[in-house]
């Protein structure tokens, strides 16, 4: 049996050497209108019992790496929320087409 550590999933960034030498970009801006709307939608859906934070996380963590890095923060949320609501049958692909 190999004792090599499994490669962590892409969201699992604690200690990742990939960013070891990159300074933290001091982005202080509050979310833009799109971000605030996605944020509010997530909270309203949670309040109505249509999704949980853990489900949001699962959806984000399932985004394949190339796409994960290509999306903005709230685009990742929207991808997760949309996927969850489709998975649960709350909305259909036709309605979103």
């Amino acid at each position: 049996m190999s004792d090599a550590e499994p490669t962590p999933a892409i969201h699992d960034m604690g200690g990742l050497s990939r960013f070891r030498c990159s300074p933290v970009e001091r982005d202080e801006a509050p979310p833009d209108a799109f971000g605030k709307r996605v944020d509010a939608l997530r909270q309203v859906l949670a309040q109505k019992g249509l999704m949980t934070v853990d489900e949001l996380r699962r959806g984000i963590e399932a985004i394949p790496e190339p796409e994960y890095f290509g999306l903005t923060y709230y685009e990742r949320w929207l991808t997760s929320i949309t996927g969850l609501l489709l998975e649960k049958g709350v909305v259909t692909p036709e309605e979103l087409a």
Binding site: L16, R20, V24, E25, R26, A29, P31, D39
Partner: peptide, 25 residues
């Protein structure tokens, strides 16, 4: 709302590995 830097890949990865370096920034 968390600020952008709190959500950044750099902060998330380096805070645990190099916290003093992050504080220095």
């Amino acid at each position: 709302y968390p600020p952008g830097w709190y959500k950044s890949f750099e902060y998330r990865s380096r805070a645990v590995r190099d916290p003093r370096g992050v504080l220095a920034e």
